[in-house]
Amino acid sequence: AEDTGVRVELAEEDDGTKSPIALRLWVEDAKKLKGKYKDSGAIEFTFDLETEVSETVAQEMVDSGFFLDSDVKVISKSIRDRVALIKWRRQRIVSG
């Protein structure tokens, strides 16, 4: 996937069954963000793979002051890519 400068990883072991899963997001390359990033560190949150969309949580991060509005797309994309990977991996385990 395209390097957004933002990393999103699992913050817990994926047992392949739970729909809400803990993720951790942090900025690896602040130069890729449009807005000024104040060093907040790693942000851990729970995301529901079945019912939630990445745009919602990205907007909540902006609302909470972690990022500026101009970066909501990059945050959202970073989360979406990771979520797609988790879902793909689960699908593979189920079908294989």
């Binding site: 990393r7 690896e28 560190g41 790693a42 942000i43 851990e44 949150f45 909540e60 909470s64 972690f66």
Partner: peptide
């Protein structure tokens, strides 16, 4: 700094903690 908890009005909890050195971009 230590971990901080930020709760969004929609109810989601964000736990903020320092990024471990080893996870910063070095690859």
């Amino acid at each position: 700094y230590s971990a901080a908890l930020v709760v969004h009005s929609a109810g989601r909890r964000f736990i903020v903690s320092p990024v471990p050195e080893s996870r910063l971009k070095d690859q």
